[in-house]
Design a binder for these strands. Structure first.
Length: 207
DNA sequence: CTACCGATTGACT
DNA sequence: GTCAATCGGTAGA
């Protein structure tokens, strides 16, 4: 039990990846380290499918890098890109290598710690973007393969105290991918100022 | 061993 | 709007 509620269980993650990506919106991502507890409300996610998704790291089969994607649901898949890290939650059953990329958080607690790690006081820049939130939460490759369903070190939780605010969910194509660029597998809380890719968001709305 | 690439970010015109 | 830093992972010689 934490001030943010119980860790989401394997049964939450062991479902269709796009559904999990939607339902992770509004949940809390939490990280406890020596520095203290940091947390944020998930406002943006992307789904990466197990089959026929050329943008997914699992598309070309299992390697040492993506092995966690092929493991059980509810584990953290942390991968490096451009000298940074990005955090995913593994979904669906073992060997269905799908995952949800956590793209942005609304900072909630441990804000001073996150400001120090990020080197900025701007609340809107702390956790906007998948690599930024990893830096803010001190998530790196050592947490690849971490079981997030046990409520230790790194986990995702429902709110037990504050009921979820009402919000609308918008979809768009995923950001930054070089294939499968049309698939509407990005999900974000409509109107949140903590969502990344605002330029693309406006472009999406005009279309 | 070398060569190339990327689910990014931040600096710059 | 454009562009390059930067480095682990991967494929191939």
């Amino acid at each position: 039990m934490t001030m943010h509620g119980e860790a989401l269980l394997p049964s939450f993650y062991n479902r269709d990846v796009a559904l999990v990506a939607r339902e992770l919106l509004g949940k809390f991502a939490l990280r406890r380290s020596r520095d203290g507890l940091c947390s944020g409300r998930i406002v943006e996610t992307e789904a990466y499918l197990a089959c026929e998704d050329s943008a997914s790291h699992s598309f070309h089969g299992r390697t040492r890098k993506n092995a966690t994607m092929f493991g059980p649901p509810g584990f953290a898949y942390v991968y490096p890109i451009h000298s940074r890290y990005c955090l995913n939650a593994v979904t669906e059953e073992r060997d269905r290598a799908s995952a949800v990329l956590i793209r942005a958080l609304e900072p909630l607690s441990g804000i001073e710690i996150m400001q120090q790690r990020r080197g900025t006081d701007n609340l809107h820049d702390l956790c906007r973007g998948p690599a930024r939130l990893c830096e803010a939460l001190a998530v790196d490759r050592t947490l690849d393969g971490w079981n997030m369903t046990r409520g230790a070190r790194l986990w995702i939780a429902n709110s037990s105290l504050a009921p979820s605010r009402e919000f609308r969910i918008t979809t768009s194509p995923r950001i930054g991918v070089t294939s499968a660029q049309q698939a509407p597998l990005r999900f974000f809380i409509d109107g949140s100022p903590f969502v990344s890719g605002l330029k693309r968001l406006h472009r999406t709305r005009r279309q």
